[in-house]
Design a protein around this nucleic acid. Structure first.
Lengths: 221, 221
DNA sequence: TCTTTTCTGTTGTAAAAACAACCGACTTAT
DNA sequence: ATAAGTCGGTTGTTTTTACAACAGAAAAGA
């Protein structure tokens, strides 16, 4: 677990906490490391979670498969990001989604109650972690609202425009790469892949954008 | 500002805080009231927000403009609801949307840092407000994920089933009322009203459910 | 009460998406 | 190197949705 301290140091949860303090807090917060192979489930819909988790290696998708096999990717978790913050409150119900490793991954679990209950002794930085958690949940809400903005658009084209515009703004450039392949992007936007691919090509032919694999460039009319 | 205390009392932010304490906390939290005429911007895309806001009168729309200038309404804020909780973190960055008053409105701004930094003296209920905010954000997060679950369904029928099933579970009964009229439900699920109405009636004719106005009853197959 | 407005259901048509099937390019594994 | 698998684009068909227009019912207002 110690080899991941350098990664934890860069996470939102431990922002501002000194290196040597993180090591001390690992036991204080009852941290546990688990590793997953690509394709393996980290958590399943319906389970109860009372841990905050941080991804320290690999990549995860928060997703949901319905009865008919349609998959929707709710969110993507990159190294250093956390999940499970929405289930902190004791009265939070079961998990609403699956969490799956899309690459070989490593996850550290922290006991929620140990985090929100400020410990008496060692952890000088504990209150900072609590505040960091506060900020992280806030941040997550923001990304969810953004995503709702995308998929609440009526047509595939509008969803693409919404998503790509957002990404361009976020990366502060009209050319950028996205963290999805076509199928994943379709799942993220909750549309059919081939229809989406078709729409992308139409927009390209209309001169609205260019792309090559996951590289995109938006063009003025 | 005092005339809005009765409204603040009913908000999630001040749940469990005594009336007389709210008055005291207004200054503690550096509360500021601002009023807006219909059509006036409350906040603009690109601004930085370091306040939690509560709408105490009127109605707001959260709007977004995409890269090509197309405008869409992302969300609606009703009296008593909060806005800005997604921008608590200092690194949240600029607002991604405009917030505009669609009626004459009144908004109370609370300094974020004053809320999350527990004050030393007077505010006996301060820690309760902090916890309220914590749970409010967490709950909003889950609500957003649930809504994503509904509208990421491919067909109008599936969206309806997803939403109505959820509502039945939440109200713990197969018969229940929903807080929307048809147009609002269609907007909530991001579908066309008439198409949705049509689909509802088909399901009724198939014997899957009954409804009358905003009262619904789900039936076994 | 009577009028006006809003709400809901209904229908037909045009547009869009889902679906399925296929192909070539590219990557990965043996 | 070759086989197997993945990925992205394309096309045609079927299903679904959006849109527009209208009418009766219900609600709100005068």
């Amino acid at each position: 677990m110690k080899k991941y301290i350098s990664i934890l140091k860069k996470t939102k949860l431990f922002a501002g906490v000194a290196d040597e303090e993180i090591g001390a807090m690992l036991s204080c917060l009852d941290a546990r490391l688990r590793e997953y192979k690509k394709g393996e489930y980290v958590l399943r819909q319906g389970e109860h979670l009372n841990h905050i988790t941080v991804l320290v290696s690999g990549e995860l998708h928060i997703q949901r498969d319905d009865y008919w096999g349609n998959r929707s990717i709710v969110n993507r978790i990159a190294v250093g990001e956390m999940f499970g913050e929405a289930y902190i409150a004791p009265e939070s119900g079961a998990l609403l989604n699956d969490v799956i490793a899309v690459e070989d991954s490593a996850v550290i679990f922290f006991d929620v109650r140990r985090i929100i209950t400020v410990c008496s002794s060692a952890c000088r930085f504990h209150s900072m972690v609590v505040q960091n958690l506060f900020f992280a949940i806030s941040e997550k809400n923001r990304t969810l609202v953004q995503k709702l903005g995308h998929i609440s658009k009526r047509t595939t084209r509008e969803k693409l425009i919404s998503y790509l515009s957002e990404e361009a703004k976020r990366q502060n450039s009209t050319s950028f790469t996205i963290p999805f392949n076509r199928q994943q992007l379709a799942d993220f936007l909750s549309v059919d892949r081939s229809a989406m691919s078709n729409e992308l090509c139409k927009m390209r032919d209309e001169g609205r954008l260019e792309f090559k694999k996951n590289y995109f460039r938006l063009l003025k009319d």
